[in-house]
């Protein structure tokens, strides 16, 4: 299966500020990918690079095997719903669909009309008078009816109330099944993504902290609590992600593929939220240990 998104050493600089640096990713197709990180972490920059709205300063990125935004075929394969799901306030719902049909060669008018009818939207109503949830659904409808292979959404539910959030995610995931879409969406809240995503990318301070299938991430991260110890004393196959100590106790979050046998530790599993927070919290985060190489 081809990768939906591959990045190698990808970076984007604005003046002297790096919005994204040294980003290496290999995301397989067929996933709903969640991109999480605090505001300003570089999520929008990464998504704009993937959709071809920005060009990289360093490194390279390929999306569905092609360079983003370069040729009509590539544009057809990738749908993009920008931050706050923008619509044209003065255009009616029907005019949005006509515009979508005009701009997108693969436009699926039946799907678009069906969705608008099911949502109970009045085709004659101007987008400016729709509720936030309805506007988001209209933007989503256009993204789906374009019939892309990959749909990228930047913080699509951030401004919505809980019910509208739920309805938006229902529509998005239903479309993912129906049209075999790969989806990449960003949020600064893990709870928005927890049920929906099966692949997660955590971005902090312009860098990818961790990326992988949610199930695998949950299975390989453990919390160890026990008597105070230096992280360097842990087995080498346990990568220490975070460490915190009291005068007597140490608590580590480690990532490892093997079982933890040392009986001094009370081992517990992490929730997805805890896992993400571990990578977000710079006060306890431990930098990866350098790999020791044998000198010849």
């Amino acid at each position: 299966m081809t990768a939906v998104l591959q990045a190698r050493g990808l970076g984007k600089r604005y003046g002297r500020h790096w919005a994204l640096s040294d980003c290496t990713l290999d995301i397989p197709a067929g996933h709903v990918v969640g991109l999480v990180g605090p505001n300003g972490a570089g999520k929008t920059t990464l998504l704009n690079l993937a959709s071809g709205h920005l060009t990289p300063t360093t490194g390279e990125i390929t999306v569905l095997g092609g360079r983003p935004g370069t040729d009509p075929n590539q544009l057809r394969k990738v749908g993009f719903v920008a931050q706050d799901t923008p619509t044209y306030a003065g255009f009616t719902v029907a005019e949005h669909l006509r515009l979508g049909a005009r701009l997108n060669p693969g436009w699926d008018d039946a799907t678009a009309r069906d969705r608008i009818a099911r949502l109970g939207l009045d085709p004659g109503q101007r987008a400016g008078t729709l509720s936030g949830g309805q506007r988001a659904q209209l933007a989503l409808t256009i993204g789906i009816a374009k019939r892309p292979e990959l749909l990228i959404l930047d913080e699509p539910v951030a401004a919505l109330d809980p019910l509208a959030r739920r309805e938006f995610m229902q529509g998005l995931l239903e479309a993912a099944v129906e049209h075999e879409l790969s989806v990449v969406l960003s949020s600064h809240l893990v709870s928005d993504l927890e049920r929906a995503c099966d692949y997660l990318v955590v971005l902090v301070d312009s860098r990818v902290q961790v990326a992988g299938e949610v199930e695998e991430l949950l299975a390989t991260h453990h919390r160890l609590a026990g008597p105070r110890r230096d992280p360097d004393q842990l087995p080498r196959d346990q990568r220490v992600v975070s460490a915190s100590h009291t005068d007597r106790q140490s608590t580590f979050i480690v990532r490892t593929d093997s079982a933890i046998h040392d009986p001094v530790w009370t081992v517990s599993q992490l929730s997805l939220e805890d896992l993400v927070l571990t990578y977000l919290d710079s006060s306890t985060r431990v930098a990866p240990r350098p790999v020791l190489e044998v000198q010849r």
Binding site: G30, H31, V32, Q170, L173, A176, V177, D198
Partner: peptide, 14 residues
């Protein structure tokens, strides 16, 4: 699968 996904807003692979 589509019905479950659309109702619960969960990942299709689940």
């Amino acid at each position: 699968v589509k019905d479950v996904v659309a109702r619960l807003a969960i990942n299709p692979n689940t």
